[in-house]
Every structure is written in C-alpha cells, then in structure tokens.
C-alpha cells in the first residue's frame, strides 16, 4: 500500500484531537512506530529499503501532531489517517451508563465478523495496534467472556478506535470518539474534539425511557448547544440509537424491528420507517428531550439496537452476548457521510 498525504496535493491535516491544522511532509522523516512495550519511538526507514518494505513500514507508522497552538500534551496520528479522503470522525454522545462503550465494542465485534460485507463495505484497522488493544480491552471480554465493561474512563481525549472503510466509491478513515458522559455534559477540555466531528451518534438508554416520563440526557443539550447555539439546523449527520432495546423487545413498535434479522443492504425507505417508529416510541413515552438531535440536526436517523441482547447480572452476561442491530446506525451515518455515494447521502436521514 502506498501511503500518500491527505488530498495528496496539499498535505494539510486537521488533527481530530487538538483540532489544529498543520502541513505534513510526506517524506519518511518524522515518523514514529508504536508498540505497547516501548510506546512511540522514531521510525527509521533505511534509504535503500525496497518499495515493499517502505510501504509496509509506513502502513503502520504514526506522525506526531505538531500542535501549533501548543495546548495539548504530545499526541500522535496514524499515518493512514492522513492518506485518504477527509476522515469521518464519529462522536458518541450519551450519559454515563447509556451503553456507549458496550455499543462501540459490539459494533467492532460485528465488523470483525465481516458483517459490513452485507452492505458491500470492507473494513480494515486504521491503526492495527490500537485496534488490537480495543478488541482486547473491550470487544473480546464482552462478546467472548460475557463480561460487563467498566464505564467510559473520564478525562480521555483520544479516539477509541479507527477503521479504514472502503466502498465502491472510495476509502475513508473513520475514527470513533467515546468520551465519558460527565465530560460531555460539563463540556470539559477533553471534549474539544466535538468541534471537529463530522458525525454524531447519540445513545439513549432504553431503561430510562418511560421510567418516570420526561426522560432526558444532559449531554445532548450540552453538545448540541455547543456545536450549534443559534437557530437553524446543524449540518452534521446524526444517528440516535435507542440502546438496550432488548429490555423493551416485546413492546410495539420495538418488537417489529428488534427481532428482524440483520439488514443485508442499505435501504433508505427502511431506515426512514424505523426512524419514524423510534421517534413515535420516544414521543409516546414523553421523552421529547431525547428527540432534540432529530429536531436540531438537518440529517438524522433513529434506530432500535441492543449491544448485548440481555441484562447483566453481577457484572456478567451469563447467557452470552447477542448484539442486535448494532451496525444499522453506523451504516446510516456512513451513508449520510457519502460512503455509499451522493444519491444515498441525499436520501438517508432526510
């Protein structure tokens, strides 16, 4: 694989972590290799290395963000992040315990099982070391050992995992930010990445809906207010995921969706019908505050999903974990971001 700078002609990169824009030198200088044992160390590619060897080394290389404004600790980006189209940066938004990390872990597990192939998409790890770490820390304990995951660590300012997603129309780096609910609702410094997100995934805890009426999530108001304080609509694609839908699986209209086999293609009509039913469910429950993303984001879809398919007991899922419809929200966000082409980008979420 030949790794060339973003938009090749310019070599200009916007760091998703500090949001500084910098020009990147596509030469071999200034690259880093990462290992869990040694961390980031300068990468030396011998001048006489064969083209194959050079490409292999660069495939795993990182570059250090110069952070021109000097306001963040040292941080690094996978070189591949800069090598394709403008990245899709997805921010997961939701209160603590809404299930953001479980959802992301289940999503990665489904992707690892090649479930995106049904949508004619291919996914590769953008940063293999980081991806392995995420799978080891989150996806495998959840899916293979049936363990409940700890809540999102507060204060983290880096993306959790990132993929290269390819469709018939191109390849996109896709980065996922999973930030603690407290950080989000208070807009702490580590939520700066929000100003650079290109897609939002709002995660609703189904257990809080209808429990006492007027269900709300302070992170929604905080994030939407920060990104778009005025009137009009926010032009960032958004997906609302009614997570833990297994807990309400027999209620209409949930039962008409959650028992369906996974979708085997993108169908804008089906996405619209499901969005309408999720909206109606939340509306009926009086959870109008949770409908803010639909009201304020110009393009928005709504989904029923369950990261685990069951409730945990004593920190475990004794009958195993069965993710339900966890890829549909991601596929909708990718469609709205143009991964399926311009026509699908217009149809989905509008």
């Amino acid at each position: 694989m030949n790794v060339t700078p973003a938009g090749a002609a310019t070599g200009v990169v916007r760091c998703p972590i500090c949001l500084d824009v910098f020009r990147w030198d596509p030469a071999d200088d200034g690259l880093f290799a990462f290992s869990e044992e040694a961390g980031y160390v300068p990468l030396r590619i011998p001048a006489d290395a064969s083209p194959e060897k050079r490409a292999g080394a660069r495939r795993l290389a990182h570059l250090r963000c110069p952070n021109p404004s000097g306001d963040r600790p040292a941080h690094f980006l996978p070189l591949l992040y800069t090598a394709y189209r403008p990245p899709i940066v997805i921010g997961l938004v939701g209160a603590s315990l809404s299930g953001k990390t479980h959802l992301l872990a289940a999503m990665m597990g489904e992707i690892e099982n090649d479930r995106l192939a049904a949508f004619d998409l291919k996914a590769d790890a953008l940063d293999p070391v980081r991806h392995r770490t995420f799978m080891r820390q989150y996806t495998r304990p959840l899916l293979e050992k049936g363990r409940r995951l700890p809540g999102t660590v507060e204060g983290v300012a880096d993306f959790a995992d990132a993929l290269l997603i390819s469709s018939a129309t191109g390849t996109w780096p896709v980065a996922f930010f999973d930030i603690g609910g407290e950080d989000l609702s208070r807009l702490r410094d580590n939520t700066r990445f929000l100003n650079g997100v290109t897609a939002l995934m709002f995660v609703v805890d189904a257990e809080t809906v209808g429990a006492g009426g007027n269900a709300r999530d302070d992170t929604y108001r905080a994030v939407l207010g920060m990104l778009h304080p005025g009137s009009g609509h926010l032009d960032v694609p958004a997906a609302v995921v009614l997570n833990k839908a297994d807990l309400i699986r027999f209620e209409p209209p949930v039962d008409a969706w959650i028992h369906r086999p996974p979708a085997d293609r993108l169908d804008a009509g089906t996405v619209l019908a499901e969005s309408r039913d999720v909206y109606a469910y939340l509306h009926r429950a009086g959870a109008t505050a949770l409908l803010q993303p639909y009201r304020y984001c110009r393009r928005c879809t709504l989904h029923f999903a369950s990261a685990t398919g069951a409730r945990a007991r004593d920190g475990e899922f004794p009958h195993g974990v069965r993710p339900m419809r966890v890829l549909e929200p991601l596929v909708a966000l990718l469609a709205m971001s143009g991964v399926f082409g311009a026509a699908a980008a217009r149809q989905v979420g509008s």
Binding site: P252, R276, D277, Y279, A280, H283, R284, Y294
Partner: peptide, 15 residues
C-alpha cells in the same frame, strides 16, 4: 393500531 404511536408518527412527519 395504537393512537399514541400514530400521534408520534405524525409528529415525526411534521418535524
């Protein structure tokens, strides 16, 4: 049929 759900769907259509 479920009148409350239908009202929610109508609200979606209006939005």
């Amino acid at each position: 049929d479920d009148a409350a759900l239908d009202a929610g769907r109508a609200a979606f259509d209006a939005e």
